[in-house]
Nucleic acid binder design. Structure first.
Length: 272
DNA sequence: ACAAATACCTGTAAGC
DNA sequence: TGCTTACAGGTATTTG
């Protein structure tokens, strides 16, 4: 599922492929994908404009366009994909928004329609982005202290809450908890004073390594990059979806369970 | 004010 | 074989 490393991989692809190019046509046929505004608003914001830059905060990414401080914000949620290729490529089911760049096009494909494309004009932040906590890659130990202080919920619940810290989802939360040595269910107000340092180190290490590996693709291959290629970081997962396998550090079988309704994995010996 | 549960979706896989 | 059910999970909303 697209979390910060997958979104960043797609954003870097967009940087290479479409910055400097002009949108010659736009079609928004998926009503749910443009539910925050309308098909006309998305198409009208896009057509005729040149992409000047790309950006990302947490799991949101955007295209900056060349006048009126216009932007197109994109969130893939769980099953969303952005795919780039020649306009002659066969159309895929569940294609909800298409941006044409002469003979190439960018397609937003999303079977489960949780994803969104949101236009913005005049430099105003859209609501979904304005509510986000600090980006997970921007947090130092002091920042982590501020995320944790005053909270009592389970650690995994806090670090997957985008209002607290943006970009970490179910997969990377498990991997970060493992690297930091804390159980996902550990209540935040029982953490030691070193927790902010350990979480800062674990998060920076896991996320930056995952970006280098171009993200994680699980068995369903829901996540692929702009050119349809899966990522490689799933081979470096230590706990996520590895119930019963030996822990890489101590050999104890990895435990699988549920926390806050989500599949959760940890080592009962290395994580406390 | 905070935390837990639920709704929103479709494709896939397991169980009977 | 074919049906039903559970599960996958991000986030806004609802409930506790």
């Amino acid at each position: 599922m697209p979390e910060l490393p997958e979104v960043e991989t797609v954003r870097r692809g967009l940087d290479l492929m479409i910055v400097g190019r002009t949108i010659t046509a736009a079609r928004a046929t998926g009503a749910r994908t443009v539910r925050a505004s309308s098909a006309a608003a998305v198409e009208g914001t896009a057509i005729g404009r040149t992409v000047t830059a790309t950006g990302r905060h947490g799991k949101w990414m955007w295209l900056s366009l060349d006048d009126e401080a216009a932007r197109l914000y994109i969130h893939l949620r769980m099953s969303g994909q952005l795919l780039w290729g020649p306009s002659t490529t066969a159309p895929r089911p569940h294609t909800h928004v298409v941006l044409e760049f002469d003979s190439d096009e960018l397609r937003f494909v999303d079977p489960r329609t949780f994803g969104e494309v949101v236009p913005s004009i005049g430099g105003s932040l859209i609501a979904g982005v304005a509510r986000q906590g600090p980006d997970a890659l921007m947090l130092d130990p002091d920042g982590w202290h501020n995320v944790l202080v005053g909270r009592r919920a389970a650690l995994k619940s806090v670090i997957t809450d985008q209002h607290c810290v943006a970009g970490i989802g179910n997969i990377y939360a498990d991997e970060i908890c493992f690297r930091a040595g804390f159980r996902p269910s550990r209540l935040v107000d029982t953490l030691p004073k070193t927790a902010a340092w350990r979480l800062a180190d674990a998060t920076t290490s896991i996320l930056s390594t995952a970006i280098e590996a171009r993200g994680s693709s699980l068995s369903d291959e829901q996540y692929v990059d702009l050119l349809g290629r899966p990522g490689d970081f799933q081979h470096q997962h230590r706990v996520h979806a590895r119930a019963g396998e030996p822990c890489a550090k101590c050999g104890t079988a990895i435990t699988g369970g549920r926390l806050a309704g989500r599949g959760t994995y940890w080592c009962g010996r290395c994580q406390r």
